[in-house]
Write a protein that binds this DNA or RNA. Structure first.
Lengths: 332, 332
DNA sequence: CACGATCGCTTATACGTATAAGCGCTTGAT
DNA sequence: ATCAAGCGCTTATACGTATAAGCGATCGTG
């Protein structure tokens, strides 16, 4: 900061005084309220004064008065935001801003259940978008009574509590498994990450693999080279592995190569996410890519309609965010 | 959401009525105000009523009343949050929450200069932490007059406007260059990314390289395989490249290998960030790792002291967040 | 037993905004 | 000339909270 005199921020009353009008007029002008009739001359005077004073409306006062914060809250720790979601998040933020909302990401990991919901509710968000498995009946009820108008879940399937933006993880596994089978693999396995927070997705993807290869094995793996090394050195490996995502795929591939195995000749590997890096490593990684299905602007419109009550949210409802597609390269 | 009756959220007045006390008493009890004397019996009654009604204090009303939002704003698009910063962000959020603050990440890309500052100022944040090169004298002034008590910059060096948490990018380049020279490289180059937002850091790192190797070449590169391919096919290459970070290093290394060149025999490569992936590729990547220097709790304490005025911020001041260290593997 | 001190609470107020309601003035129709 | 209708503004109020100030009852002290 620059100086030590913490002046009070200018208010609409200050602007009114500077422009020689009442505070109400300032509010009418700056909000372009269509019900108000103010001459063009006065409008100019108000706008000039506001600009001159550097007036910025106080969001908390406005929220208190209107009962609507316009905040769309995504309680999601930064660490859990994947590559694709990152772009979607930025785009969605831009689209929401155009419609008068503020998309806010509020990372927290330690809070659980109702305690977490309380932290969210304090901001009086208009909407909360959160991983569906972090919601309970009690926390949804708390949000609802504290004025949150929209709660949207993120997850792998429908929830009895809220509508859910789904990503069908089973399909991802099934796509990978089908390719491995078509390539001639006879023994297929799926990696399930041990990391908390994504283990559930790992299980869903495994389920998809088993839709194609009923006996597919499950490999639980933590994201570190040592454990991957033990896996590779253990022998008795399948000849086709769906590795959950590209990062795990590279981890496994690296460990296999260290153990003297060839990819894809000895073991074929399929990843997911289509990171740019996946196309750079040797052999180039076959992967499942996610194409954005819902445009950010569509999502923003939907949220806006839900908040304004023009559309009724249905618990149990489901809409797709991404559609998976197989990219065949050399690792499988 | 669940139902269609948008009940009004319970207020402290509702709690007061339910507990048979005044609203003021509710506030005293729930905030554990040390100046207030309330019997233990009454305290219990108030707490019970609050719990029963699912009372959550309205953050905007509290902000309006106290003049302090407790919001620490990081206007940083999700795409720009790197791996290391991601963990730091989560940790810092936890530490700040313990001290009564709310760390909020507010991604926006389209807004510039004063317009951006206006968007930030509307939330009446207690503190704003933002890339220093996005600040102007006007935007800092706007924040200050709108009540933001602390503005901290992020960047590569001191700013005349605000104190800056620095990462000395020159040192990173210097570390990499020294290693390349010690290995016997005679012609050294540094990659400068073309991506907006990180190009400045690229130049700083190049400067560090030139502190060691005055004549070091500059390679401007966009993050895509085609351009890297043209670079590799162009011939007349240096025998040592500092590739800005691990991702660019992998990009360049992949392109060189495609062109039939050997790493490190023909061209040695150093990256930066020490991504796990850097240790998985062949050859394993030599890289510059960043160790967290300031503990998240120290940062939180510092921010708290600045907000409370117990410590005076000095424009031009600088404190280090990370310290770089070379990790030698096989690519150089 | 009188009286100040302390206890345990209540009453009143301000924060900055949006908006309903009102009010004087001009204008056009009659 | 009279009056309703509109115009261009102002006045007044409420949102939910924190906190200063006040006030009756009880207590300790002399």
């Amino acid at each position: 900061m620059t100086e030590d005199t913490p002046r009070r921020p200018p208010t609409s009353v200050d602007v009114a005084r500077a422009a020689g009008v009442s505070q109400a007029t300032v509010s009418y002008v700056l909000n372009d309220n269509p019900n108000a009739r103010v001459s063009e001359l006065t409008r100019q005077r108000v706008r000039d004064a506001a600009a001159r004073l550097g007036y910025v409306p106080d969001a908390s006062a406005r929220t208190l008065r209107t009962g609507r914060s316009g905040i769309v809250l995504i309680p999601l720790s930064a660490a859990r935001v994947g590559g694709l979601a990152r772009d979607l998040l930025d785009d969605l933020g831009d689209e929401l801003r155009l419609r008068g909302y503020t998309l806010v990401q509020y990372g927290e990991r330690r809070l659980k259940g109702v305690a977490a919901a309380k932290a969210w509710a304090g901001l009086r968000p208009s909407a909360v978008i959160v991983e569906a498995d972090r919601l309970t009946a009690a926390s949804v009820e708390l949000l609802r009574t504290s004025g949150t108008q929209v709660v949207i879940g993120l997850g792998g399937g429908p929830s009895p509590l809220v509508p859910v933006a789904v990503m069908d993880h089973a399909i991802i596994g099934a796509l990978a498994a089908r390719h491995l089978v078509e390539r001639g693999c006879t023994r297929v396995a799926a990696v399930v990450p041990r990391e908390q927070g994504i283990d559930a997705m790992g299980v869903s993807r495994l389920r998809g693999v088993r839709q194609i290869v009923p006996g597919a094995e499950r490999i639980d793996l933590a994201f570190n080279p040592e454990e991957a090394g033990r896996l590779a050195a253990g022998g008795d490996l399948p000849d086709g592995i769906f590795a959950y995502n590209d990062e795990y795929a590279l981890l496994v591939m690296s460990a296999l190569q260290d153990a003297g195995l060839r990819v894809p000749e000895d073991v074929a590997i399929v990843g997911a996410d289509d990171l740019l890096l996946a196309s750079l490593v040797r052999p180039r990684l076959t992967t499942v890519r996610f194409d954005t299905l819902s445009l950010p602007s569509d999502l923003a419109v939907m949220i806006d309609e839900l908040v304004r009550g023009e559309r009724q949210p249905k618990p149990g409802a489901v809409f797709e965010l991404f559609r998976p597609r197989l990219i065949v390269r050399s690792s499988a």
